[in-house]
Design a protein around this nucleic acid. Sequence first.
DNA 1: CGCGGGCTTGACACGCGTCAATAATCGTGG
DNA 2: CCACGATTATTGACGCGTGTCAAGCCCGCG
Lengths: 246, 246
Amino acid sequence: MVPTPALSLNMLIRKLESISRLSDEERRAIERLPITGRHLAAHQDIVREKDRPSQCCLLLEGWACRYQLLSEGKRQIFSFHIPGDIPDLQSLHLKVMDHSVCTVTQATVAFIPHEALRELTAAFPGIAAILWRDTLVDGAIFREWMTGIGRRSALEAVAHLLCELYVKLEAVGLARDHAYRLPLTQADLGDALGLSNVHVNRTLRDLRDNGLITLHGGKLQIDRWQELTGLCDFDATYLHLDRGAV
Amino acid sequence: MVPTPALSLNMLIRKLESISRLSDEERRAIERLPITGRHLAAHQDIVREKDRPSQCCLLLEGWACRYQLLSEGKRQIFSFHIPGDIPDLQSLHLKVMDHSVCTVTQATVAFIPHEALRELTAAFPGIAAILWRDTLVDGAIFREWMTGIGRRSALEAVAHLLCELYVKLEAVGLARDHAYRLPLTQADLGDALGLSNVHVNRTLRDLRDNGLITLHGGKLQIDRWQELTGLCDFDATYLHLDRGAV
DNA sequence: CGCGGGCTTGACACGCGTCAATAATCGTGG
DNA sequence: CCACGATTATTGACGCGTGTCAAGCCCGCG
């Protein structure tokens, strides 16, 4: 069930080309990357805090998230990742993991050795720039989450996250018509937003009762996109999805 | 009062060399960067949300911060910056600013054109890697702030920030003996931590009353470092100050 | 068909926000 | 060197948003 290397790297090439055109030489260099495919179950760690990984992980299928555990069992989720993402790309330049990465659903990933990535980026500054940019977008999303957690009400924060996920999924063709599969538990949402699972539940009911969304069996339908984005002041600029921006 | 170019770039070189040794050629290339010095008053914007800057800003003296304004006058501060930092390095690869940068105190900065930085990083992958790494450390700090805002109590969050600032300042020689100048208002701290200025005040008094810190006239003295770090579970790993890590 | 994880709901408590009034501090100009 | 206005810090009273605890429900899976 593990996809062939060619298929895997096509996913990466598509992602990079969504930002900036690649030369034939660059494309060929990427295709030569030595990768290892792997199938993972849900809720399984890929890298752990304090690890010193020697490879990065390209997500091909399924969802993953980055998180940290605190004393007293509290958890903070930093980001959710979808196919095409490299959640631990930062480990290329930061030796020690300061957080963990785990699967949310079952997932297919491709591991790429740091060594190969370092050679690739040294030889092709254009590719380095796109990958660098990708980590900068991560940073932009972290910032937006900070304002969500710090300065938005629970209702605004939940609405904002649902909008963000839709826009990200839509951009890679995994969502349309303001609907998508949402494989997160309410506790996951809470750990991402600094809320309790109970309060996430109340908040979702609120959104449902007001006819803004329909959420059932892991399928989310945003019924009134305009009102939802208005409610939480959603502005997708921070996702930097505009092309040709390197 | 604007420092000479040579002086400015020495600051950048020192910062880069604190991470990884530079070759003579690399050092010379950095020294050739065309820069413009400037002196700024406190509380003055350097770049604004929605701007499309064509240069980056190297902070030589004083403090700066990155922030975003929300409707209803709320503000979220994303980071504080000290001499040697390039707060808007991300603008090199993300065209549109999704937040603003402003001075906290009066400050001296050097502007470096994007074009020059792009040429530098294309020619010297080693320099590109160090700069990339720098933006990754920013990201790591963003993550830590997320858990501070989302999952720590006000007391823990304030303590954690005070520890972080000390370690960062100490690393560049701007603090020692667990003491430093803290030019932030209580409202600034609150906007960074998702708290009200009033509650920051209560929290600081709490820390003072318990003999952990002395804070007066912008001078902070951490009287019991062990207890303060213990209180908030501070672990400096996420600052990635260890050398030779690229 | 029974088990378990996730969802839902209610009751209650508390941390933190808000409002407001006063005191300390600082920069600035006379 | 002092007076003044403008921030900033401080404190108290009060309320609300969200957390916590606990119980029951639903549904998918073995």
